[in-house]
C-alpha cells in the first residue's frame, strides 16, 4: 500500500546533521512510527504536517514532497 506522494525526508535528515527519525518526530509533534511510514511512502501526511516537516528543514514544501499519480496507477495495474 504505497502512496503517490514521494519525499526526500531521509536525504534532508542526513543533510541536517544526520537528524534521527525520533528527533524529527519530536520537532513535528508526531510519533517516530509516523515519520517511518512517511519516509517509506506508506502514509501521505496531512498538509499541515507536510508544512511542519518542510519548516524543520527550512525548505519549500515542493522540495521535500512531490506528487506522482502515474506511478501509483502503474503499481495498481501490476
Amino acid at each position: 500500500m504505497s502512496s503517490a506522494i514521494r519525499n526526500k525526508i531521509r536525504y534532508y535528515r542526513f543533510m541536517n546533521g544526520e537528524m534521527t527519525q525520533q528527533e524529527l518526530a519530536e520537532r513535528t509533534g508526531v510519533t517516530r512510527q509516523t515519520i517511518l511510514a512517511i519516509e517509506s511512502d506508506k502514509y501521505s501526511p496531512s498538509l499541515e504536517l507536510a508544512f511542519r516537516i518542510a519548516a524543520v528543514f527550512q525548505q519549500p514544501l515542493e522540495e521535500i514532497f512531490s506528487y506522482h499519480p502515474e506511478e501509483n496507477n502503474l503499481s495498481k495495474e501490476k
Binding site: 509533534g29 510519533t31 517516530r32 509516523t34 496531512s46 504536517l49
Partner: peptide, 12 residues
C-alpha cells in the same frame, strides 16, 4: 528503552 505512546498523532 524507547518511550511508548508519547503522542497520538494524525495517523493514529
Amino acid at each position: 528503552k524507547e518511550s511508548v505512546f508519547t503522542v497520538t498523532d494524525e495517523r493514529d
